[in-house]
């Protein structure tokens, strides 16, 4: 079954207090050298049919209207290839 991954991230200009909290925690736990952390969401969509242009167009539409709020978030869509072969 084909998998399409949609990654959703807050736009760079939007403050990400969760990412900042993670970043502040890292040195306390001994993980040094990390300059910045941004936290986002990853959606894994398993398609019933083939990943063709039409299917990808529909997924982009879903990402644009539903999975991401494009007022504050950017998204990327990518095909992950066939799993389990």
């Amino acid at each position: 079954m084909a998998r399409v991954v949609v990654d959703v991230m807050l736009k760079p200009e939007i403050l990400d207090p969760q990412g900042q909290a993670v970043q502040r925690a890292l040195p306390r736990l001994g993980f040094a050298g990390i300059a910045d952390v941004r936290q986002g969401k990853r959606f894994e969509l398993e398609l019933e049919g083939p990943v063709d242009d039409a299917a990808l167009a529909r997924i982009r539409e879903a990402a644009e209207t539903f999975l991401a709020n494009t007022v504050i978030e950017d998204f990327t869509v990518r095909v992950e290839g066939e799993e389990g072969k």
Binding site: L15, P17, Q18, A21, N69, V71, I72
Partner: peptide, 16 residues
């Protein structure tokens, strides 16, 4: 805001 009847968005409080 999600309906786009109003502009902008509401995000997590800066204090968390």
């Amino acid at each position: 805001c999600e309906s786009h009847l109003l502009p902008g968005a509401l995000t997590r409080n800066d204090s968390l």
